[in-house]
């Protein structure tokens, strides 16, 4: 085949793949609207939290070049922490009601989870990634990926060893009567958690855009030498990035505790889904993580609704594989160069 012919074929495949993927998303959205508000509401709640996990993943990849496989485990750490903070608080509230504490207890739990997640991320960077960075930068992406694989195994089994395999969940955070939205009854927890996710995304975005530290994080992701030249302490930024990314995942875990009880492998599903999001919108592309979160949550919800439970891995996985084949840089392009070796 001549050079130009190959080129044309690839262009055609790319457009065909692009069309397939865009069409599936459109169909998904139309089907979503068609199938009633319940699906939409569900999608929006899980999508918001999923976006947080994906945001952390994209941040860590974009700045540190680490494809996190252990990101779900920070989700798990978050849900576990929230469980151990919230349960005693709830018990205390049962015996001595206090409306102020009742309103803030979930926030305390989520805040605690965020802090623990951030500290866990800090420790991982200090004990693991900075050690590898000191010793060898060769083949960094692959080696750091394998390190996170090991980390994931350790954290999952540490949970099993220390806290057991049973589900550690709660029934509700705030409780209260469900609100009616477009004919569907939505629990107050879902609404508040969604609001929380949006607030976190907003704060994160403002931080990255307008603060000096946020800009420094972006600078490091774009040119490490340049960042060093203007006086940025790279190691400090890397530490901060890891802590931020892991905290985002932990917030999601804590926020969704009333839907997903904590157990050793609870992080696997958010991990897969967050990876789907990140690949869908382009690795390292934080800007579109929110959109991607909703799209993937919708695809998943629709798969469960129309094709059946259990297929929700198959269809998204295949769809993402299609994206990877035809448009490896993601639907919305990407800042990461050199996806293709050719």
């Amino acid at each position: 085949m001549t050079e130009s012919k190959t080129g044309t074929v690839i262009v055609w495949m790319k457009s065909a793949g692009g069309i397939t993927v865009t069409l599936s998303i459109l169909i998904a959205i139309i089907a979503g609207i068609d199938s009633g508000p319940y699906i939409i509401v569900n999608t929006i709640v899980t999508g918001g939290m999923l976006a947080l996990v994906a945001l952390g993943l994209a941040l860590i990849f974009g700045v540190m070049n680490i494809p996190m496989f252990a990101h779900g485990e920070f989700f798990m750490i978050g849900s576990l922490t929230a469980y151990y903070i919230f349960t005693p608080l709830a018990e205390y509230l049962n015996t001595s009601p206090n409306s102020l504490l009742a309103a803030t207890a979930p926030l305390i739990a989520i805040l605690g989870a965020m802090i623990v997640g951030a500290v866990a991320g800090l420790l991982c960077e200090l004990l693991i990634f900075s050690q590898l960075r000191k010793r060898s930068r060769e083949n960094w992406v692959m080696n750091s990926f394998l390190l996170t694989v090991g980390l994931s195994v350790v954290l999952i089994n540490a949970h099993q060893l220390l806290f057991g395999t049973e589900f550690k969940g709660i029934v509700r955070y705030w409780g209260g009567r469900p609100t009616e939205i477009m004919g569907a009854f939505v629990s107050r927890d879902r609404i508040l958690v969604f609001v929380l996710a949006m607030v976190v995304v907003g704060v994160f975005w403002l931080f990255m855009k307008y603060t000096s530290t946020g800009r420094a994080i972006r600078a490091v992701s774009q040119d490490q030498t340049g960042a060093l030249m203007v006086g940025i302490n790279i190691n400090g930024i890397l530490l901060l990035t890891m802590a931020l990314g892991c905290a985002l995942s932990a917030i999601a875990g804590a926020g969704l505790l009333f839907l997903y009880p904590s157990y050793p492998a609870v992080g696997l599903e958010p991990l897969y889904l967050a990876w789907f999001v990140v690949i869908l919108v382009g690795l390292g592309n934080t800007a579109f993580a929110l959109v991607g979160g909703f799209i993937v949550a919708l695809i998943k919800a629709l798969t469960v609704e129309y094709i059946g439970a259990g297929w929700d891995f198959v269809i998204p996985s295949l769809l993402i594989t299609v994206v990877l084949v035809f448009k490896p840089s993601g639907l919305f392009g990407s800042e990461v160069r050199g996806v293709l070796d050719l």
């Binding site: 990926f145 594989t321 990877l324 084949v325």
Partner: peptide
């Protein structure tokens, strides 16, 4: 399908394909 991609993408793709196959066999 995968091996024209950079290493990490190839790894992701084999991973997702494996997941999909596991789902298929379950179903």
């Amino acid at each position: 399908l995968t091996l024209r991609l950079r290493g990490i993408f190839a790894a992701c793709m084999t991973w997702f394909l494996g997941l999909a196959m596991m789902g298929l066999i379950t179903k």
